[in-house]
Write a protein that binds this DNA or RNA. Structure first.
Lengths: 227, 227
DNA sequence: AGGTTTTGCGTATGAGGTACGCATAAAAGG
DNA sequence: CCTTTTATGCGTACCTCATACGCAAAACCT
């Protein structure tokens, strides 16, 4: 039998508590003391189960992603598009996910299942393994980057809504000298930056959809050139 | 005339000193005390010119990017591809750039010049303004995400080189159950993850090139469907 | 029961951000 | 030239955090 005092908590409990705090108040509110308090333990008790805060963050990172949803019926394009949107949604549900300083390639089971899901979408596509990985990496990179951007803007909007109320276009008009940056000035004049009222999550979603469309279009073209 | 004691330093000086530290030792080494010491001032002297550390980080963010290089001759594709690679190179030169928590849309002059540069590359392309912005945003997102990934892996490699010496594929083989994740298992078996020796920056650059190729291919397809 | 081992945790240390207030320097007014 | 005004320089102090260390409490073994 196992000797010594019985542990009252384990690393998984700590991770869960930390995630609950991050979900409710953001990653900045996750401190060892706070997590311990939330669990009714003393701060230093945590260190019996977790080497350091960095390790706790790594555990949080592994647990943060939910399971990948089952792929829809259709061709690879439907599936991969669905997958990319699922990635965006999953990250958006845990905005602090991208704030965790990561350290290495993914080995956590959840992340590997996401990878498997994307590769399943490409199952019947005639591409080399390395190419498939490239496609998935590119898509994943794009989705994460877009999620980051959306999160950033959403947060900036919370802090200072006035900054976004169709003043952005105006502000750019003041700053940008058409002689110095003619291409940008022309786009500004077209009014794309004059957001009528507020930047909404849906607008940002439209940007994502367009980028996704371009990328998938590129994959299709590449497949065609292969066949 | 302006009353009061003459300032001996200004925000730009502080920003420069902070950037020098970040370049040399990473963003983690940038503390108010450290920056002040480096300038030969007392810690609290900085607060006369900078409201908070967050503000200092924002200033660093604005100053961190170098000027966009002039675009090469060629069609939009050459130019945009060159631009994307230039973004990657510029970020790679300041790996701490992506670690700064950002707050809002870009208004700094350098960032606007990068934007102008990309739009110049699309000058003669028959797309709507909003579409051009979408293309540039997508590309920029992709480049930043890839830079982040490369930086992460490079750092992980420094910390623990053994982890990468063609053990990654082996490790995956142990973890991944082919019955649970057949698509992933098949790719693993193909040996793509068995990096012969070491993950090199060049290999990662190849990934970037492939993703870039796909994206530009997609843009080309979209333009064709427009014409 | 006595010894052993493992967990729980109080105390202490050091780093970092920053509020506050006084000292100091430079211009303006007499 | 001296006083008043105003902006800067910065010492002190406080608070939050992560974490090393060591002792006490609990559970198992003989």
């Amino acid at each position: 039998m196992k000797r010594g005092r019985k542990p009252t908590i384990d690393a998984a409990d700590i991770t869960r508590a930390a995630i609950a705090i991050a979900d409710a108040e953001g990653l900045a509110s996750v401190s060892m003391a706070r997590v311990a308090a939330e669990m009714g333990n003393a701060t230093m008790a945590l260190y019996r189960h977790v080497k350091s805060k960095d390790e706790l963050l790594a555990l949080m990172w592994d647990s943060a992603m939910e399971e990948p949803p089952p792929l829809p019926d259709g061709d690879w394009r439907d599936k991969l598009g669905f997958w990319a949107k699922a990635v965006l949604v999953a990250i958006r549900r845990r905005p602090w996910f991208l704030q965790i300083p990561i350290s290495g390639p993914p080995v956590g089971p959840k992340n590997l299942r996401w990878l498997d899901s994307a590769l399943t979408a490409l199952e019947d596509v005639p591409l080399e393994p390395a190419e498939k990985i490239g496609v998935v990496m590119g898509l994943s990179t794009f989705a994460q980057g877009e999620a980051r951007l959306i999160g950033t803007l959403a947060q900036g909007f919370e802090n200072d809504p006035a900054q976004f109320n169709h003043q952005y276009g105006q502000r750019l008009r003041e700053i940008v000298d058409p002689r110095a940056m003619p291409a940008l000035a022309e786009i500004i004049e077209s009014g794309v930056f004059d957001l009528d009222d507020v930047v909404r999550a849906e607008d940002l979603g439209a940007d994502f959809d367009f980028g996704l469309h371009l990328f998938l279009e590129g994959v299709a073209a590449h497949i065609r050139s292969r066949a």
